[in-house]
Write a protein that binds this DNA or RNA. Structure first.
Length: 421
DNA sequence: TCTGGGGTCCTAGGACCC
DNA sequence: TCTGGGGTCCTAGGACCC
């Protein structure tokens, strides 16, 4: 059996953990640049505020004092996430951290009658120790775990934990689950299935496999099997990620090449740092840039490019250099870029890099770049860029991101905590 | 005026091989 | 005049997740 532990309205709950005044109020948390709504309290959901809507559309409600708002504070959320995961891990060692607010727990070996009491205890402890409310769904597959979690979250009678452990419960739950609520069926797939007469998860399960394969391909068949309690979605957690992407939207569009060079250099530097943090190196570097797709009146341009490195590296100078080289290729005058990013690919273990016979960088030179990067990591802490290559910006990584409603770093910065208290 | 960021997997089609 | 068939690998783009 799997248990899916999912924090309720996670970003909002993190804000509430340190600001009890937000309890019981409609609260939303915004994306970077205060762009759109990425988390809502139950009260905000009840008001009909939709996930992902642009902030300016609900600004009136905020100005009228009907909704409280916070800019996203990922340092705070990351720290609380780590604490929640540690509590889960201390009881169930085999966990797959699926996202910042969710983890699958492998309940293998735990007697069936103990599973619900154990998960209830976990949920109570997490709330008590961190302030974060957590719901847990237990089932024989991850997709059914999602279904069970939904019931745990929305029906108070379950006291935060719901289990699907019999064919009867499974059928009942599936009949009550609209097809667009099924994990793996997105906003494009759902209307298509509705058109084919599939309205609930149970409708889908009752179709023959050949029908599912024809209309939904291999991924649909997996979902179909999972809904029957046959697990076939693999653990995505592995030794190392396959790609790392750093991208941002800009508060104002950038139409100056020098300015975009600074930003691309920053993104490349962050990618390189992430690689070093996990002992990885990348064999390929890519960049992309985008004009504002909401401005139909302006010319659009969404180029991307990628280049292979002679050998996998993780030092900042070489990755920045590759990224800037690509910008030279893609750059065109006359566009205002609203977003850009750097992506590193073909990731391998740094200690096991296969050198290239025709490498144009002498080995000693690369050792120097690696040393420089190690120094940068020592100096550039807490998001500050004190030591940088010449094309990077000085200052703080969050500079130039709009965060009008940001809460303090309650759990990681004692000075800010003192100021508040 | 103002619309996020970071991942994974799958597929179709082209390049290339014999 | 007549011009195959079967593979693999790679890439870009789409769909999905949070």
């Amino acid at each position: 059996m799997f248990a899916l532990a999912d924090c309720n309205n996670f970003f909002v709950s993190c804000e509430r953990a340190f600001q009890p005044v937000l309890e019981g109020r409609p609260v939303v948390v915004l994306s970077n640049n205060d762009g759109c709504v990425v988390a809502r309290s139950n009260e905000a959901k009840a008001m009909g505020i939709k996930m992902g809507i642009p902030f300016f559309r609900i600004k009136e409600l905020v100005d009228a004092g009907k909704v409280d708002v916070r800019s996203s504070n990922y340092t705070l959320y990351g720290d609380l996430s780590r604490r929640v995961m540690n509590i889960l891990r201390s009881t169930i060692p085999d966990i797959e951290v699926y996202s910042i607010d969710e983890a699958f727990l492998n309940l293998e070996g735990i007697p069936s009658e103990e599973q619900v009491p154990l998960c209830r205890e976990l949920s109570v402890r997490i709330k008590k120790w961190t302030g974060i409310p957590v719901s847990i769904g237990i089932a024989p597959s991850k997709t059914l775990g999602k279904v069970a979690n939904h019931f745990a979250k929305h029906y108070p009678g379950y006291k935060g934990v719901c289990i699907i452990d019999s064919p009867e419960k499974r059928e009942k739950a599936l009949s009550l689950t609209p097809i667009d609520d099924v994990w793996g069926i997105g906003w494009r797939g759902a209307p298509k299935l509705e058109g084919l007469g599939v309205h609930s998860a149970l409708d889908l399960v009752r179709k023959p496999e050949s029908w599912v394969l024809k209309h939904m391909h291999i991924t649909g068949v997996r979902t179909w099997k999972e809904l029957q309690g046959i697990p076939c979605i693999e653990d995505e957690n592995r030794e190392r990620r396959q790609s790392i992407c750093t991208s941002r939207s800009f508060a104002d569009p950038i139409s100056d090449k020098e300015e975009l060079t600074l930003r691309i250099s920053d993104f490349a530097g962050i990618c390189a740092k992430k690689l070093r943090q996990e002992g990885s190196a990348a064999g390929s570097v890519g960049i992309f840039m985008e004009t504002s797709r909401f401005r139909k009146d302006l010319p659009q341009y969404y180029p991307m490019a990628r280049t292979r490195l002679e050998t996998a590296v993780n030092n900042t100078p070489e990755i920045v250099k590759a990224a800037i080289g690509l910008l030279d290729v893609l750059w065109k005058e006359g566009y205002g870029f609203k977003r850009a990013g750097v992506l590193v690919d073909e990731i391998v273990e740094a200690d096991a890099v296969q050198g290239s016979l025709f490498d144009s960088v002498p080995d000693g030179e690369r050792k120097k770049e690696d040393k420089v990067s190690a120094l940068m990591d020592r100096f550039n802490t807490n998001g500050k860029t004190l030591l940088r290559v010449a094309t990077q910006r000085p200052g703080h990584y969050a500079d130039g991101i709009r965060r009008e409603f940001c809460s303090p770093l309650f759990s990681t910065d004692w000075k800010q905590l003192l100021e508040v208290s």
